[in-house]
């Protein structure tokens, strides 16, 4: 019990635990849509794109959430717009826009000596810098994203299953696509500090994949994914504290361990393997 309670002496741990748990949960929730729409690369790309904005706003002296937020929303809308042009393809569009933005961030850093520590924190996540206002922002963003996804459950399910057909049935697919891109950008920006640029993609993908291996129902997949994300965020924070490793890495490693366990358990039956294959087969 002492092992569990001891870290609570530190405010950074209390703040970090709240943010990591919420971050794990919200990434896992929106990640279900990301994975099922075969957009796993988008989370990876967006976090890299936002990195450029984060560095630029730091150097210019603008608030991180404002600077990176504006940059992230612009990147998300641009990716969404370019991806809808079928002649280019979503992966190529994301690749061009996001890597250019990331390279811009790296270029700015390389021009400014003494930026190394912040650079590592941004890449791999660091809870030491999480304060009360970060906790409030992450909580508000997560509540808003979750609330919107729950409110729009029905059209989002149809859009995710078959966007072309959904539009015939009156689902406003273009507007929902744009909204989803914004929700994803907001999630990435809010969780970047604790998960890190390079590990956000894993937090978006691993819990949904774990959930997909154990259920054939969309609603159940959402629930299991969130449970895995929340639990991994919570456990990962303790591991980060006791093993003295980056928070993003410990959360993702916890998720990866769950993945391996569930994979082995479901691989004993044929259905587990089929479900796993289904996640990446469309």
């Amino acid at each position: 019990m002492e092992v569990l309670l001891d870290p609570f002496r530190f405010e950074f741990f209390r703040n970090g635990l709240i943010v990591a748990t919420i971050s794990g949960g919200i990434c896992a929730l929106i990640g279900v849509y990301v994975v099922l729409r075969n957009m796993s690369y988008i989370g990876h790309g967006l976090s890299h794109a936002i990195f450029g904005g984060a560095v630029a706003s730091f150097l210019v002296g603008i608030n991180f959430y404002l600077g990176a937020g504006a940059w992230g929303f612009a990147s998300a809308l641009m990716v969404n717009r370019v991806a809808r042009r079928r002649s280019i393809g979503a992966d190529a569009a994301i690749g061009v826009i996001t890597t250019a933005s990331f390279a811009f961030g790296v270029a700015l850093i390389s021009r400014n000596a003494g930026f190394t520590r912040n650079f590592e924190a941004a890449l791999f996540g660091n809870v030491l810098g999480v304060n009360r206002s970060d906790v409030i922002i992450v909580t508000v963003v997560a509540a808003a994203v979750a609330g919107i996804l729950i409110a729009l459950y029905r059209p989002m399910l149809f859009l995710t299953f078959d966007a072309d057909v959904a539009s015939v049935f009156g689902v406003p697919t273009a507007r929902l696509d744009a909204l989803f891109a914004l929700l994803l950008a907001a999630t990435v920006i809010a969780t970047m500090q604790v998960l890190g640029v390079t590990l956000i993609a894993a937090a978006l993908v691993i819990p949904p994949v774990v959930a997909r291996m154990v259920t054939d129902r969309f609603r159940t997949m959402l629930a299991i994914s969130v449970v895995v994300g929340v639990a991994s965020g919570f456990v990962g924070m303790y591991l980060s504290f006791y093993l003295d490793i980056a928070s993003g890495a410990s959360i993702v490693l916890t998720q990866a361990s769950v993945f391996v366990l569930v994979y082995i358990a479901t691989s004993r039956g044929r259905s587990g393997r089929m479900r796993l294959a289904g996640v990446s087969s469309h």
Binding site: R275, S281, H282
Partner: peptide
């Protein structure tokens, strides 16, 4: 064109 591995049951598809 249908993604047969999408996690939906028959009634969920119809209700869409």
């Amino acid at each position: 064109t249908v993604n047969w591995y999408f996690p939906v049951t028959v009634d969920e598809v119809v209700l869409m």
